[in-house]
C-alpha cells in the first residue's frame, strides 16, 4: 500500500470514522458520499462508530500473504457494529474461541509493516468483549 493511500484512510482505520444518513438513519462504514436509499434527499453527516459489535460470520486464515504469514492461524470476521452496519476486520483470539454472534470490541493494533524500513500501518482490530 502506498504511503498517501494509507494516510488518506487513517481516520477511518484509527477511529472508525464513517458517516450516516440523517434522513433515513442508515450508517456507513467506510463512509459514503451519497445515501443509496435517499439519493438527493439524503443528508450525509460524519459519525464515529463506538467499536462495539458482534461477529456475523468469520473465516480462519491458515495460509496468508507474506505480510500476515507470521500471524497465522488468525480469524477474519465480518463484524456487525452496534449501529447496524458491517465491516471486515481481524479478531484477535484463538481460532477455537471465535463464534458467530460473539460480542467484540475494538482495539488499536498494528495491521502490517512494509518490511524493516517501510511505514508501519496501524488500525482497528477486534477482541472478544
Amino acid at each position: 500500500m502506498s504511503v498517501p493511500r494509507y494516510w488518506r484512510k487513517q481516520q477511518n482505520r484509527y477511529n472508525l470514522k464513517g458517516n450516516y444518513c440523517e434522513t433515513c438513519g442508515r450508517y456507513f462504514f467506510p463512509p459514503r458520499v451519497l445515501c443509496p436509499d435517499c439519493r438527493r434527499d439524503g443528508k450525509i453527516v460524519d459519525y464515529e462508530f463506538s467499536g462495539n459489535g458482534t461477529v456475523r460470520t468469520f473465516s480462519i486464515i491458515r495460509t496468508a500473504s507474506d505480510d500476515y504469514d507470521l500471524q497465522t492461524p488468525y480469524a477474519i470476521a465480518i463484524i456487525e457494529l452496534e449501529e447496524g452496519t458491517c465491516m471486515t476486520a481481524q479478531v484477535i483470539c484463538e481460532p477455537d474461541e471465535i463464534s458467530i454472534g460473539m460480542p467484540v470490541k475494538r482495539v488499536f493494533r498494528k495491521i502490517f509493516s512494509e518490511g524493516d524500513s517501510g511505514v508501519i500501518v496501524y488500525g482497528t482490530k477486534f477482541v472478544p468483549a
Binding site: L70, Q71, V107, F108, I120
Partner: peptide, 16 residues
C-alpha cells in the same frame, strides 16, 4: 506483547 502490539498500540489503549 502480541505479534501486532508495540509501544504505540499500548500507548493508544492506555490513553483510551
Amino acid at each position: 506483547p502480541d505479534l501486532d502490539e508495540d509501544t504505540i498500540t499500548m500507548s493508544v489503549e492506555a490513553a483510551r
